Each structure stands twice: as C-alpha cells, then as structure tokens.
Amino acid sequence: MSELLGVAVLGAGHMGADHIRRLDQGVSGARVAAVADPDTDRAAEAVAGIEGVSVHAETASALDAPGVRAVLIASPGPAHEEALLAAFARGLPVLCEKPLVPESAGALRVVEAEVRLGRRLAQVGFMRRYDAEYQRLKSLLDSRRLGRPLMLHCTHRNVASPPGFTSAMLVNSSVSHEIDAARWLLGQELTAVTVLRPQPSANAPEGLVDPQFVVFETAGGALVDVEVFVNSGFGYQVECEAGTARIGDERGLAVTTAGGRHEEVAQDYLVRFADAYDREVQAWVDATRAGRVTGPGVWDGYAASAVAEAGVRALENGGRVTVDLAPRPDLYA
C-alpha cells in the first residue's frame, strides 16, 4: 500500500503535540490528517506548517474528516472511552495512549465492544514494550537463562509532580507503566497489591503521599516492588532489575572537569523514551497499513486499570487488596 495512512490525533497537549510531530517527521507511511482538541488554538499551533490537516473542536468531526483512516488518542484519560467507542463504530484502527480508560468498569466496556466487533482494532500505548533495554530484558527472561523469575525490583522517579497531581495518581498514572511492564516481562497476571507509605518527602506538595512503595503479587508466585517518587528533584529515572539483570543504567553525556564528573539525567519521559515512542508508533503504522493489530491490546489496558484500582484502594486502606479480573475473552487468548 503506497498511500499514506491518514491519522486523526485526538488531543494536542504535551503528548498529543509530540505525536503530531512524530507522525509528521519521525515515522514513515503516515500523515496527520486531522486533529481535535477543545482548545482549537492549541490544536492549530500543534499542526502549524503541516499541510492538509483539518482542525476540530469535537472528536466526531475529526474522525469523519476526509482522509482519516486511523486514530491516535492522546486526550486526557476520562475522554478515552467515548473516543474509542466512536472509532470502533467507524471501524477505525486506534492507538490509544494509556490509560485505556481510567476506571476498570469503563475499560471492560471497551473490551466488550471490541469483542462484539469480532476483531481487534485498538493498541494501547504502553511504550516500554518498545524500548530496546526492556526488549532485551524480556528476551533474557523468556530464555530462562537466569532460571524462573522470582522478583522484579523497579524504580520510577520524576523531577516534580505537575499541579493537581494526587496521591492516587502515583499508582494509577505513574505506576501503570510498571503494571504493564511486569505483566509483559513475567507473562503473568498481577493478583494482589500492597502500598506502603513512608514519611512524605520534603519536596512533596502539602498532602501528597510521595514517595510510595508498591508491592504486587503475581499468579505465578513472583513479587514485583516499585519505588515511585514523583518529586525527586533531580531527573526522570526508570530502572528495573530481575535477578542479576538490570536495565536503566544507560547514561547520557558525561563531562569530567575541575576534578569531578557530571552525567546527564533525562528530565522528561519524552526524552528518556523518545526512541521507544518512535518504535511504537512506527510499528502501529506498519501493522495498521497491513490490516493487522499488534502490541499491547485492549485486554492489557483493562488489566492495567483493574490492577491500578486495586492499588489505589490499598493506598487508601493501608492493606493488601486482591485484583478481581473478568474472564479473559477468547479474542485476547
């Protein structure tokens, strides 16, 4: 197929604008055909200089715009369910940024809608599956060269939390990436969550429980722990250790001067995972043009939302909370 894949991008904020740039400049086989954002000035700014793009305030009008054959959802999580169901109704393939839907009930409705279609249409944006280091760790664990995985140790640190960031969001926004990565790396569902609350950092805004220590149990008897710290003050840092294997130590520019050594630390997830985002979107474009869906799907998005909900309850209640998943449909076997 020689024709470029026309993509409607929903959301022109930080993530959406980056995907617009990526589709226009970073991947092959696709173009931005339409963009939708309630702030049409922001949308117009995001596509400035890109020819043939229509700007819309409403999702439906963007999906129905001329040349649209696929959808990339980068709007806030609460808007995802409506956008996904609208895309399904039009038979449009979707790449949806995480979360699929923040609430597990809504995510399950999306699962049920896709099952009724009888075919997969949506991929969820868990980009760590496309990161070169994570892929090498996955291959190593699958090979069983180190034996059966028993524990994963993870860290997830940000420079500072944005305004309005809540204690629950450390789990259902930040740690949602570790939830999917753990399920994928281990090939097991997460079955229970415990959240431990140390004394908040002096860097944390008033009332924010930060850092947190999250422990997941898996169906195969493994344990996964995550230190999440969103006001570290120094940079964006993601690490994962399985036995003697460890990722996340790759360094940026190192400068030795005046008797010391300084190494750069990424300040933003779009910097740390820039290559993973490029790989993810390129893989989605290639698969979509070939009429296929690959990568993490709607079931993975639902499972992540269900585990995150259990994690928020564990944070609030201070105890161990089990994860209750619906039966997995054959479409996702």
Rank of each mutant, 00 (worst) to 15 (best):
2 S>N: 09
7 V>W: 11
9 V>D: 08
15 M>F: 13
20 I>Y: 06
26 G>Q: 05
30 A>S: 04
35 V>A: 14
35 V>S: 13
37 D>A: 14
37 D>I: 13
40 T>R: 15
43 A>K: 05
53 V>L: 10
54 S>W: 07
58 E>A: 15
76 P>N: 08
79 A>I: 06
85 L>E: 14
89 A>G: 15
89 A>S: 15
91 G>V: 00
96 C>M: 08
98 K>Y: 03
101 V>K: 00
109 R>P: 01
109 R>G: 01
119 R>N: 00
121 L>V: 01
128 R>F: 03
129 R>A: 13
130 Y>G: 00
132 A>R: 15
134 Y>P: 03
139 S>D: 15
140 L>A: 10
142 D>R: 13
145 R>T: 13
147 G>Q: 04
148 R>G: 02
154 C>Q: 06
169 M>A: 10
176 S>I: 02
180 D>L: 10
181 A>R: 11
181 A>M: 12
187 G>P: 09
193 V>I: 10
194 T>M: 03
194 T>N: 04
196 L>Y: 05
199 Q>D: 06
209 V>P: 00
214 V>L: 05
216 F>D: 00
218 T>N: 12
220 G>S: 11
223 L>F: 04
230 V>R: 06
233 G>D: 08
239 E>P: 00
248 G>V: 07
248 G>K: 03
250 E>L: 06
252 G>V: 13
254 A>C: 13
270 L>T: 03
276 A>I: 14
278 D>C: 10
284 W>K: 10
285 V>C: 04
290 A>V: 11
298 V>L: 08
301 G>L: 06
305 S>T: 04
306 A>W: 02
307 V>Y: 00
313 R>M: 11
313 R>C: 09
317 N>I: 02
320 R>G: 04
323 V>W: 05
324 D>V: 03
326 A>E: 12
332 Y>G: 03
